[in-house]
Structure formats: C-alpha cells, structure tokens
Design a protein around this nucleic acid. Structure first.
Lengths: 347, 347
DNA sequence: TCAAGATTTGCAAGCGCTTGCAAAATGAGA
DNA sequence: TCTCATTTTGCAAGCGCTTGCAAATCTTGA
C-alpha cells in the first residue's frame, strides 16, 4: 500500500512502463534513447511514462550504457564572483541538455585536482570542464591520452594543444588602454593580475602595445604587479598615486582589483572619475552596482561557460573532433568611472 | 596491449582485484564496505587494490547497494559570495567523507526546485542540502513523506518542523545594535534584508529589541526596507542620509548592503566611520578587504555548510533521528567601520 | 581431541538499464 | 498476390557491484 503513492513514483522502471504501454522493455529503452521505434508505439510509451511518472535511473543507464549524463566541473573556489559567473553559464547550458553537474572545488590542497580527475574520469562523468586550472600539466596528459572529453576554461600557457575556451585578453587590454588614450589620458597606470597566468600577461601586453601604437612610451613605474585580489590592488593603487607624477587613469586587470583601486583613491579623498579614472576587466555583476558604476572590459564569463560546455559536448559526441581553442571577444562597457583627464588631475 | 596502461587503470574491477589477491570477489566487496573480513585477507586485498589502482565504479555500487555517495546541493545562485561560502563548507565536509557533490542552481525558473527534487531523490543522491530555498513548501512535504534525508540551510518560516541549520539572526541583530549603542550612537539607521525571509525579519527584530532595551524609541523613519542587494541599499542609505536628522550609524542587514551604504556615504563626501559608522552582517570574505574594513556580525557561513552536512549524514545513517534545527552563534567582528559618533555627526 | 557455536567465505541473484542478435512485421517491386 | 529487402521488435546477456544464504573455517570449552 505504501508503494504506489502518487507523490512518490519510487520504483517505476522501464518494465512497468513496458507493461503499461504493452510493449517490450527494450522498446521503452529505445524510446528513451531515440532509437527507431514506430510512431504509434512511441506514443504509447511516452504516454505511459508520463502517466506513471517514470524517471530514469541514471546509475543504471550509466552502468549499462557507459554514459552518465553528468559532467564534472572543477573550479578553485566558488566565492569568487568570476567563477560563479562561469559556472552559471555551464549550468544553463547543461540544463538545456538534460545533463547534471558534479562540482569539485580545489582551493584546499594543491594536488587535489589530479586526484579528482582520476576519480571522475574513471566513471561518473562523461566529460570534464576545468576552470582556470592550476598545475594542469600533471593530468592534462592523462586526459588526452585516455581520450577523455575535457575543455579548459580561461586557460593558457600549456605548450601543447588543449581544448579550451577563453577571451581575447590581449585585445581587451589593448582596447581598454586605447579607450583611455582617446579620452586624453597619457599617464595610465596598470595593475596587473597574477602574472603566472597567461591571461594576466596578455592583458598587460595589450596595454603596452596600445601605448606604443599611440606613441606613448611604456613607463614601468606605472605598472604595478597585482594578483587579481582586492588588497594587493589597494596597495598598488597607493603606490601609483604616490608617484611624483601619478597616473590620471588606472587600468586594473580585473574588476576586483579595480574595486581595490577605487577604495584607495577615495580613501585619499580623491574623486572618481574626476581626479582619477578607473577601468576594470571582467564585468562581474558587482561592477554595475558600485558607485560610480565601473567602466570595464567585459569578458563574457557566462557565455564562456556555455561555449565551453558546447565544445565539451562536441568531444563527447565525436571524440575525434579536432582540438580547438575558442576565444570569445571582450568588449568595452562604458559606465561612469572614466572620463577625460581634468586640468587639475594633469597638474 | 592498449589495455593495461599504467596511466589508465581503466577497467579494473573487483574481479581483477580478487584474482590478484586470491580471494573471492565478494570478499573484495566486503573489504570495500568494511564488513568482517579476516585481517590477513583484508591486507592482501588492500595491497592488490593499490597495486592495480582500483577505483570503485560508483554507478555500480549505487545500483547494487542503493547508495550513491553523492549528495545534492541546491542553491539559487553561485555568484553571491554568501552561497559560495556555504558551499565551501559543504564541500570541505564532503571531501572528508568521501562523498561527491551534485550541484543545482535554480536562479532561472521558479518551479525548478521542485523538478530537481523529484529527479534527485529518485536516485542519484543520498541526501539533499537546500540553501535558502524559496517556495520550499511544495516539495518539503514530499521529502518528508518519502523520508528522504534533507537539511535546509538558513531557512525559517515553514510552519512545520524541518531539519535545518541557521544562525542566531535575532541575536546578531541585537548584538550589533547594542554595540552601536555602546559606542554612543542614538540614531541608528537600519537597512533591512528581503523581508519575505525569516532571517531578515529576525535581524530587524533584534535591532528593535536592542533599542527598546536601551530605552531608545524605535523610529520607523530610520528603518528602510532593502533586499540584501547593493543597489537598493545604496538608495536606502541615501534616504536615511537625507533625513532631517540623519543617523550617525547604519546597520545593514548584510555585507553587500553595507557596501552599498558605504558607497552612498562616500559619494556624498562623507567619511566612514568619521561621519557615519557602518555595520554589516555576514562577514563575507570581501568585508575584510574593503576600506575601511567592515565591522560586521559574523555568520559562520562555511561552518553552517559543514554543520548542515553533518546533520544530513546523521539522517542518512539513521533515518529516524529526530528533526533538529541547529542555530550557530553569530559574532561581532570589529574592524574599522564603526566608531563613537563625533560632535559633528551629531550636529 | 571433539562437538557446538561463532565467524568468515563463496556463490548466485539481482539492482535498472543498453544493445547485439535473430525473429517478426512491414514495405516495395514484380 | 508473393518474394525479398528493410525496418521494427523482443530476448538475453551483461555493465560492476552488494548481499542473503549456505558452506567452510575457526574458536572455544569440556
């Protein structure tokens, strides 16, 4: 009696559906898997499934068919807005594909990623998304060798080809700097990201090239090494502002750094953008919520997540698809934190 | 030949281990599951497992044994630091328990949660953690009825008992207000959270009680309804600051709101805490990184995640354990955003 | 040393599904 | 209308594991 509660379609299997639809259980399976089944039977099966409230048992499908309909997502941390945005994109795409998401964070131990990779690829997931992976070399080789579907998000710097999705960091650095130059700035400070990462290096390179192209010499004292985090950016901004000839604009390598710089500026009683313009990078949700709203180089984070997921699925479906690196375009988002340098700021 | 690559311990099953250890496959299974096995055999099996690089197939275990060693985590959004922190706690605890985490975000569709719950509880996960669930009533009943292990994190307001972990929101509101009063503030503005949530109401109630206990009348004009988000808090702070008698301190119902208020204050050229003190709630990582560093009521978010996970496991292991609500203590974290009101601010 | 109980072990069945194979049903061409 | 090629269908096996049951082994006390 406790069995067939309408609230709990507990134990309904393909056999139940088959009986109800008056077909064999393999026909039900074929309907589920979209194999050739005559239209009328398919109808009957579908109806029976919904009437009974059938829900496939993923474990069983996976065990029998070798597909789990789960993909793994490896990130460092969830508390960083940046990761959250990417995860959001992944999640959206997955929902559309009827896949589930297994989440792993690795912020604790260093070697953890490797262990997870082994675990996951063994079974459990059909593919792996690695967001900004650290010491990836150790397991990337394994993944490739096993021909296990995987895509890196926002990663650069491995010497061999690896499927990945990123943004046009160099171009973003270039465009941002160019924008500042067009506004009339000549002394443009730059707070770098964590320079062990390719994206940080590319952004800096874009900045330098834009200056050069505009005939402005690259001044190393205007470049301060940050780490993508707020406290260090705060320090950097102070260093830049303490310069004998402080910059009239500061280009931070990510939004979080920009926030740090904004605080430093305001702590000194200076105004944004009146005294100093601030330009960020990322366009995390918060950047539109601060005051003044942050002008920034938009990295389509959620879309990167989505694109990476799609790419992953091409590998899941055709393991021999060529290794691709997709770069999504960055874009300048003008808000309120930049303006032409004022006479006083130039003084 | 491609088979037994040392890099890819692909198809090693308990049968392989059994052969290697010269025992029956069920003995291997028993070793894995910590059932009684004689010490020497257990030794042999363990050795064989590590030599062969055996990794259990979770799908199979789950299918056969009814346990998946996965728990589900349902959150709205990942981009909010708050959720990330809780997830971190969950994740840490899970890692220790050798469990995996299936992540579901529900920020898109409203009714999505219900659908997920059905899906998940069908098989797939052994338990469910629901963080700040919205229209929980719809499926909470189902979960309870099926006796499916679940714990809510930071939730209140359902009329029947439900296993949950939260923080002492009322006390936090009380303590924060008390602290401000002790500093000498009399006109203390309050920016509420989303008042549909129990935690927001409790914090407000704590604030009111603290005022009352101190003999300070509760002034409704000093209370402005926010929604836990930065833009609305910015607006609220401006409303409060526009008052004929503006507050000398503002207590925001979460850190994000506090950031919004800080911006509003600074946009007016006022200083924190010189002109206005700011007190937050949550103690998200960012609150220590802003300037001045935010004094706030710490909610042990990660620990709430950990505790909820532990509680969930008691239900997984003993389905009849009594329904508990655990409240973790909040704590005042003094940083730099509050001070005694100055003569000028009182003017 | 032996019997009786306690423990450990092995076998087989089965979890819910996919899929190769062969049989049945269908369609086309003559 | 009948045959042959084609599609659809059903059966059985098996994915890797857990677990009840009965047989084998060990332990203990007399």
């Amino acid at each position: 009696m406790a069995r067939k509660s309408p609230i709990a379609p507990q134990d309904i299997t393909i056999f139940d559906v088959a009986r109800e639809a008056n077909v064999s259980y393999s026909t039900v399976s074929r309907v589920i898997n979209n194999k050739g089944v005559r239209a009328d039977k398919r109808e009957r099966v579908l109806r029976a499934m919904s009437e009974l409230g059938y829900v496939a048992n993923l474990q069983a499908r996976s065990l029998a068919g070798g597909k789990s309909n789960i993909i793994g997502l490896l990130v460092h941390s969830l508390t960083v807005e940046y990761f959250g945005e990417i995860a959001r994109g992944v999640d959206e795409e997955l929902a559309a594909l009827q896949y589930d998401l297994m989440l792993y964070t690795t912020h604790r131990r260093k070697g953890r990623e490797s262990a997870y990779v082994t675990r996951l690829t063994r079974n459990l997931v059909d593919g792996l998304l690695l967001v900004l992976p650290q010491n990836a070399e150790t397991y990337l080789e394994t993944l490739r060798h096993r021909r296990f579907p995987h895509v890196l998000v926002d990663h650069q710097g491995v010497d061999f080809d690896v499927p990945s999705v990123g943004a046009t960091n160099w171009q973003g650095g270039y465009d941002g700097t160019h924008y500042l130059i067009e506004l009339g700035h000549r002394r443009i400070g730059f707070i770098t990201g964590d320079m062990t990462m390719g994206c940080a290096r590319d952004r800096l390179a874009g900045y330098q090239q834009a200056l050069t192209d505009a005939g402005i010499p690259v001044n190393p004292t205007l470049i301060c090494e940050g780490d993508f985090l707020q406290p260090q950016a705060f320090i950097c901004a102070n260093v830049l502002l303490d310069l004998e000839q402080p910059p009239t604009a500061i280009f931070a390598s990510n939004d979080v750094s920009a926030f740090g710089a904004m605080e430093a500026i305001r702590t000194r009683g200076l105004h944004i953008p009146g005294d100093v313009s601030i330009l960020g990078f990322d366009d995390t949700p918060q950047s539109a919520q601060v005051h003044p709203a942050l002008t920034t180089i938009r990295q389509p984070l959620a879309e990167m997540g989505r694109t990476a997921t799609q790419l992953l699925f091409t590998y899941i479906n055709e393991p021999d698809a060529p290794i691709k690196r997709i770069e999504l375009p960055t874009k300048l988002v003008v808000r309120q934190s930049c303006q032409a340098p004022t006479v006083s700021s130039l003084a």
